[in-house]
């Protein structure tokens, strides 16, 4: 399956889903004018990836997925879709694949850190919280 690459714009984040290395990253700023138009294709890609991966999953062949979320800002409409994306990744976990979710936040940015804690609580899965200096 081809990677999903979406270049960032002033209003939308950078998306890099690399199925070959099992690394999935969303980073930057999310305030799309058409939030559904931006996030729906990402969810569709993930559903397809989900079907592909789970069809080759056996008891002896499991994957390890790394999800890196490095958001600097996302509006409330985007948060709904980020949650949907994370819930899609949880389907891999429920089938026995290992999923690591890394939540990056700028040192001192309580807002993004707390948003991550809430997301983690909402999907009922622990995140690795990683701070960085701007």
């Amino acid at each position: 399956m081809e990677p999903l690459i979406i270049e960032p714009t002033e209003f939308t984040p950078n998306v890099l889903f690399d199925p070959n290395n099992s690394v999935f990253e969303i980073s930057g700023f999310s305030r799309p004018e058409n939030v559904i138009g931006f996030y729906r294709p990402i969810l569709k890609w993930l559903e397809e990836f989900n079907d592909n991966l789970l069809s080759i999953n056996t008891d002896y062949k499991k994957s390890q997925l790394t999800i890196n979320l490095k958001m600097t800002y996302f509006n409330s409409a985007s948060s709904k879709f980020l949650l949907d994306i994370l819930l899609e990744f949880m389907k891999f976990h429920s089938k026995g694949n290992k999923v690591d979710i890394n939540w990056f936040y700028e040192e001192g940015d309580d807002e993004i850190q707390e948003s991550g804690e809430e997301m983690s609580d909402m999907i009922g899965y622990p995140f690795n919280f990683i701070s960085y200096k701007n």
Binding site: N34, I36, S76, A77, S79, K80, L83, E118, D121, M122
Partner: peptide, 19 residues
């Protein structure tokens, strides 16, 4: 916030009832 985001759908205007 949690109950709204988990139950609500995003409207065609992009609002999720969360603003």
């Amino acid at each position: 916030y949690k109950s709204t985001i988990l139950s609500g759908n995003v409207s065609p205007k992009g609002g999720a009832g969360l603003g």
